[in-house]
Amino acid sequence: MRSGFAMILDAQPDITVVAEAGDGEAAVEAVRVHRPDVALLDIQMPGLDGIAATEAICSATATRVVILTTFDRDDYIYRALHAGASGFLLKDVRRDDLVHAVRVAHAGESLLAPVVTRRLIDDVVRRGLHPSAPPTGLDALTAREREVLVLLGRGLPNPEIAAALVVSEHTVKTHVSNVLSKLGLRDRVQAVICAYESGLIKPGAR
């Protein structure tokens, strides 16, 4: 399966596969050596599992991680995203969706549809699972940046945020960048988690 994914991705004109790894520790080392833009990791790997490998990679590099697994349980998704993953895909993902996922992760976008994002975070917050404290610095956000964070938390893409705020997509990109920078967040997925854990969005809110 790993070889199949590598062939699919390496066949794309804008993607180059720089390494493959058969276990978590080898994956972390490969990322350290090659510094890829994106790493695809399995949840279940020999030795260091995918979630631990994700945490190790995201804490030490700028590589974005996409989790591939046969599991679709909410707790796996949440643990992977909170470890720093930029997205979550099942192994039966279609070829085109796999390629799209790598490009989306590279661009810093979320790989979870809004409805999946809301269901996931609502469930996690209702059950009181808070692996880490929400980031400080919300008071550093402007009123508009707080609005953007709330809309990110609801899973809206940039065009819908722009429409909701009646601004250009370029302006939205600037606000999103400011939000991530001020709160020390890696990407939009972490912004979703932050919006809920900081109380800006309540469970069940739309």
Results as ranks from 00 to 15, higher is better:
1 M>P: 04
2 R>F: 08
3 S>A: 02
6 A>M: 07
15 I>K: 04
17 V>R: 01
17 V>Q: 04
19 A>F: 00
23 D>S: 00
23 D>C: 03
24 G>T: 00
25 E>D: 04
25 E>P: 00
28 V>R: 01
29 E>K: 09
29 E>M: 10
32 R>V: 03
33 V>F: 03
33 V>A: 11
35 R>M: 06
35 R>E: 09
38 V>T: 08
39 A>Q: 07
40 L>G: 05
41 L>D: 02
42 D>A: 05
44 Q>H: 11
45 M>Y: 02
48 L>N: 02
49 D>G: 07
50 G>I: 01
52 A>Q: 14
55 E>W: 00
59 S>W: 07
60 A>R: 14
60 A>N: 11
61 T>C: 00
61 T>A: 05
62 A>I: 05
62 A>H: 07
63 T>D: 01
64 R>F: 03
64 R>C: 02
68 L>H: 07
70 T>F: 06
71 F>S: 10
71 F>G: 09
74 D>Q: 10
77 I>F: 15
78 Y>R: 12
79 R>Y: 05
81 L>K: 12
82 H>T: 15
84 G>F: 11
88 F>Y: 15
94 R>Q: 14
96 D>R: 15
97 D>A: 10
98 L>M: 10
102 V>F: 03
102 V>M: 06
103 R>I: 07
107 A>M: 04
108 G>M: 05
110 S>T: 04
110 S>V: 01
111 L>V: 06
111 L>D: 03
112 L>C: 06
115 V>F: 14
115 V>L: 14
116 V>I: 09
118 R>I: 11
119 R>F: 14
122 D>I: 12
122 D>Q: 11
122 D>A: 14
126 R>V: 15
128 G>H: 12
131 P>S: 10
131 P>G: 12
132 S>D: 05
133 A>D: 15
135 P>Y: 09
135 P>C: 12
136 T>V: 11
136 T>R: 12
141 L>Q: 04
148 V>M: 02
149 L>C: 03
149 L>I: 09
151 L>Q: 01
152 L>N: 03
153 G>R: 04
155 G>S: 02
155 G>M: 06
156 L>K: 10
157 P>A: 03
159 P>K: 15
164 A>E: 13
167 V>F: 09
168 S>F: 07
169 E>V: 14
172 V>I: 14
173 K>M: 10
177 S>W: 02
181 S>G: 10
188 R>V: 15
190 Q>P: 12
192 V>C: 09
193 I>R: 01
200 L>N: 14
203 P>T: 13
205 A>F: 11
